[in-house]
Design a protein around this nucleic acid. Structure first.
Lengths: 242, 242
DNA sequence: AAGTGGTCTAGACCACTTT
DNA sequence: AAGTGGTCTAGACCACTTC
């Protein structure tokens, strides 16, 4: 279950093993996970290595530790998580109990416009992939989304990889781990063209959301501008601490 | 500098030592802190103990580590912090470089309406303080804010305590520590009356923000509905992790 | 008493960056 | 080559919870 020859650190393999136990429903919210000593025996690693795996999952909110009792799967539910975290359109709609859909309006590799290059920290002559999509929820148009990805970061991006999950492609296929996103939310009114695509009256209010996502190494990896129908969409966020 | 007999863990003492170096300006943003081995020699503790202190500060965003180079004081500025956290109107405006102002339109102790009682987890016959304010930024109207506070949680609330900082009064005077808030952001258009107060044209887009704040014990303590001018206000948020 | 997480040691080898 | 953080070991004693 653990590959000691792998370049992937053992603590990270243990992390993935525990997460997979949770995803596969072998462990549910509130369940106790095996103790540190049990993992030590199971994987033949030292206790500190197990602790590193467990503590990482505690920091990311997956597990909760109680002194003298044990370590448990957090009962922080999916909606709470999605409020706090960085999610794509599809995950967002699923957590709201709706069926996500998508129509690709255009996919192109182009020279970055000045504003886009600025946000993505690119030189002006650098290329970006521009992805324009209409997004659906329960088969009704919900949003118009335009994403920009630096071409030098994911040179082999194709239309097919975008469709299932762009985020998963970047994280798992390209090995570029996301860290956080900075998002701005404005209110505006639709233009005639946008109104047509979203099937709403001209002059209707919309939420204009701009998101810039950053990798763990600090580099911006994605800039997405979205126009959401205000009559159907409410942006929810959980703000931690005081 | 480190008290080995203290019940306070050594790694925590080291954490405080490093934080104090930063607060006292001996270390500024971007400065490199002593290496793990240097701390090991200075405090006569093992490297793992130093690591625990340093990693905690990395997780809380105080320090940044770069492999092969060293550990540095994070230059995460105040604006980034305010994006992540729970702030009142005044703090928000100050972090945007504007002068906050406030005009109290009404302050009353009333029976909670059904919707308000529901959000604040009150019985229907419970009282709330209702506080209606017009909020200004650089002397221009920016938002209309209506707050509801359960009367039984802060029975002695007066108009005067609201003005400097309602949050500080609840946390420091009443000893009720905030934990988090759940916020929803919608787009809408102003009514004639609201347009007048905000000094904007009738039918202008606005951001409708509703926030419910919770204490560390899980109880809701505040429900606030705000109407922000969309032409002047953009809601910013930092979403951590993936 | 047995089991759990909390803290701590004194080493080790690795990959990476800088000189 | 020297220094840094990244990973890992094989133990130890403690405080806490449960039985």
């Amino acid at each position: 279950m653990i590959d000691r020859k792998s370049p992937v650190p053992m603590y990270y393999q243990i992390e993935q093993y525990i997460e997979q136990l949770i995803e596969s429903r072998n462990l549910k919210s509130g369940d106790q996970i095996p103790s540190e000593r049990e993992f030590t025996d199971q994987f033949h690693v030292s206790r500190m290595t197990v602790r590193q795996a467990v503590m990482n999952l505690v920091h990311s909110g997956v597990l909760v530790r109680i002194k003298g009792k044990g370590t448990f799967v957090s009962n922080q539910n999916k909606i709470e998580k999605s409020l706090l975290g960085l999610n794509g359109f599809s995950e967002d709609m699923i957590s709201r109990g709706m069926k996500p859909g998508s129509f690709m309006m255009s996919f192109a590799r182009i020279r970055a416009a000045a504003k886009v290059a600025d946000r993505l920290a690119l030189d002006e002559h650098d290329d970006v992939f521009e992805i324009k999509r209409t997004r659906f929820a329960d088969d009704e148009p919900m949003a118009i989304e335009t994403s920009y990805i630096p071409a030098k970061m994911v040179p082999d991006l194709t239309e097919d990889q975008v469709s299932p999950s762009l985020y998963q492609y970047i994280e798992r296929q390209c090995g570029l781990p996301f860290d956080h996103a900075v998002q701005s939310i404005e209110a505006s009114v639709v233009t005639a063209e946008e109104a047509k695509i979203l099937a709403i009256p001209k002059g209707s209010p919309i939420l204009l959301i701009e998101r810039c996502s950053y990798l763990k190494n600090g580099r911006p990896i994605e800039l997405t501008k979205s126009l959401f129908r205000a009559d159907r969409y409410k942006f929810m966020v959980k703000l931690p601490r005081g």
